[in-house]
């Protein structure tokens, strides 16, 4: 199979303590994987390492057969960060303008949108069923609608891999259902590889094809099968009582 991401014996720390150690992980094309684990277990950090924004102290990360820190074809990877929604909500931009910003690399030296690029903005918004909101100010959309716009924003570069950092936060059940509908469509119909971080085990486990567990800087790449994930939960709760899964939905 085609391995999109390969991580070998990776160690990473921001300051003294290892945030991630001995990480080995492979993600194949077409997977829909979830990263779960307690707060501070290094999930977002691993995304940033994969994207090449952070450099590991030891080990190697390869993405599309290139070292992560040298990877430059940004458009092939879509990323929605954990704090994507803490932008200034009165920012005077429309959904279409926000989506178009991601086409930056596709614009020429004079950074303007031609009609082909405008067509791509429309198509991306259509994929998330938001084409009617193209000219609406982004701040006036609901939380779920904003999120669709952000997904459209990653789609506009026609990525092969999408990394979503806690996309379910702030969505009600209905919106979560809509979210998975969109994501499943991208996964099944467009064949996009998807990795999402979530704390919502309950919701996630019915949707994804694989769960990767994070705990105290280590990861278990096949939580659902090799490492039973209920056992994982119990162990984590016993060990540091940090991780309380949200079952109350």
């Amino acid at each position: 199979m085609d391995k999109i991401i390969q991580i070998e014996d990776l160690y990473f720390s921001y300051e003294q303590q290892w945030v991630l150690q001995e990480v080995n992980l492979e993600i194949e094309r077409g997977e829909f994987a979830a990263f779960i684990g307690p707060n501070g277990s290094g999930k977002s950090t691993l995304f940033k390492l994969i994207l090449g924004f952070l450099k590991p102290q030891r080990g190697r990360i390869t993405i599309f057969d290139q070292p992560a820190e040298k990877f430059s074809a940004r458009g092939r990877v879509g990323y929605i960060s954990q704090n994507v929604r803490d932008f200034n909500h009165s920012f005077p931009a429309t959904a279409g303008e926000i989506v178009g910003a991601n086409l930056y690399q596709e614009m020429g030296f004079v950074k303007l949108l031609n009609s082909a690029l405008k067509g791509r903005i429309k198509r991306a918004l259509k994929l998330v069923d938001m084409e009617d909101f193209k000219n609406e100010p982004i701040g006036k959309l609901s939380g779920g609608q904003k999120q669709r716009v952000f997904i459209a924003r990653t789609l506009v570069t026609e990525p092969e891999l999408i990394l979503l950092d806690e996309p379910l936060v702030g969505l009600d059940q209905e919106a979560q259902k809509d979210f998975f509908q969109v994501i499943n469509q991208l996964h099944r119909e467009l064949g996009i590889t998807i990795i999402m971080i979530s704390h919502d085990l309950h919701v996630i486990s019915n949707q994804v094809s694989r769960i990767v567990c994070f705990q105290r800087g280590k990861i278990y790449p096949h939580c659902a099968s090799e490492f039973d994930y209920n056992a994982y939960l119990q162990q984590v709760q016993k060990e540091d009582r940090l991780f309380i899964p949200s079952h109350e939905h």
């Binding site: 932008f87 910003a101 991601n102 930056y104």
Partner: peptide, 13 residues
């Protein structure tokens, strides 16, 4: 893009 979100702009090259 930079005015909207510096971080994201960086990510997009």
């Amino acid at each position: 893009f930079v005015a909207f979100n510096e971080e994201e702009a960086k990510l997009s090259g």
